[in-house]
Amino acid sequence: MTSSQRRRTTRHWSAISESGSLGGIRLMLAIYDRFGARAYQGVLFFVGLYYWLRRPIARRASREYQRRLKTFCPSVSLPRLTTVRHFTTFGTAILDKVLALYGRIPPESIRVEQRETLRNAIDSGHGGIIVVTHLGSHEVCQALGRLRRDLKMSVVMHTQHAQRFNSLFAGIDRPLSVEMIEVSDMGPGTAQRLQARVAEGGFVVIAADREPIETGARRRWIDFLGRSAPFPEGAFRLATLLRCPLYLLVCARQGQTHHVHFELLGDAGTLSRKAREAWMTDTMAHFVTRLEYFCCHYPLQWFNFYSFWQSEQHNVRPPH
C-alpha cells in the first residue's frame, strides 16, 4: 500500500498527532501543581470535551472500540458520555505519564499484583522482553526503576512521534538505567545492543498493540475483541532471536492506585529454531487474549485512538 492510498483511507496512527499541544500539557501540569488533583480533573472534563469536538478520527476510533468491547464482554459497564470519558481518562493517563517520568509517582500508590513474578524475573538474571500496550500508562513502571536500581531497561519506542511529548523531559535526568531506542533505527547494531542488555539481565520494553510503522513489516492478523486486527510481530520475534523470556506488563489506574500486572507470556530461552513459528503463534494469541481481558477489566484505559481494525480493509494481506 502506498502512503497516498493510506492518507486517502484511514490515517495511520503515526500520522496522527499524539499528545495535543505541549503548551497544553504544561498548563495542565501547572494546574495540577497549583490547585491539586481535583481541579485537574475538573478542567480535564472540558479539555476532553474540546478534543472530542476537534478530533473526529479519535472520536470514531473510541466509539468503534467501545462497540466491539460491549459485544465482546457484554457485562462491561461503561459510563454515560463514554467517548468523552474515554478522552478525559486519557488526560489522566497523560498526567500519570508525565509525573512518572519526572519521578513523582509515590511508590506507595503502586501495587504490583504479581510481586513474585517480577522479583524472580529481575533476580533470575536472564533478562527478557517486556511487552507493553497502550492500555494504562506503562511509564508508571519506570518508577519501579527508581525502586530497584538494578532494574535495567531499554525502551524501544517511536520517539520521533512522541518527540514533542519527550521535549517536556529534555531538562530532567532520566534514571541512568533506562535507555530509549528509536524504533525506526532498529537494525543490526541495535540487535547487538539489545542482546547485551538481556545478557546483563536487563529488559527490553516494546509495545505490541499498534500496527507497525514500516510498510511491509511483519504483522499478524489476530482476532481482537471479535474481529481480526494487525498485531506487530516485532517484540515476539525479538524474543526468539535473543532467546529470552517474554513478559507482559500492564499498569492501569483504579482510583488512586496504580495496579501493575506483570505476567510471563512465554519463554523462548530454550526454543529450537523449528519451534519458533509455533511459539510465535501461541504467544501472540496468548498476548491478545490477555489484552482483551485487561480491556474488559479497565474498559476506558485502552488508548489507541486510531482505527486499529479498519486498516484491515486497506491493507493487502500477506499471502502467507
Partner: peptide, 14 residues
Amino acid sequence: LDSIDALELGLALQ
C-alpha cells in the same frame, strides 16, 4: 530482507 532479518544478521555477525 526486512528489518527483523537485519536484527538477526547483526547477531549472526557477532
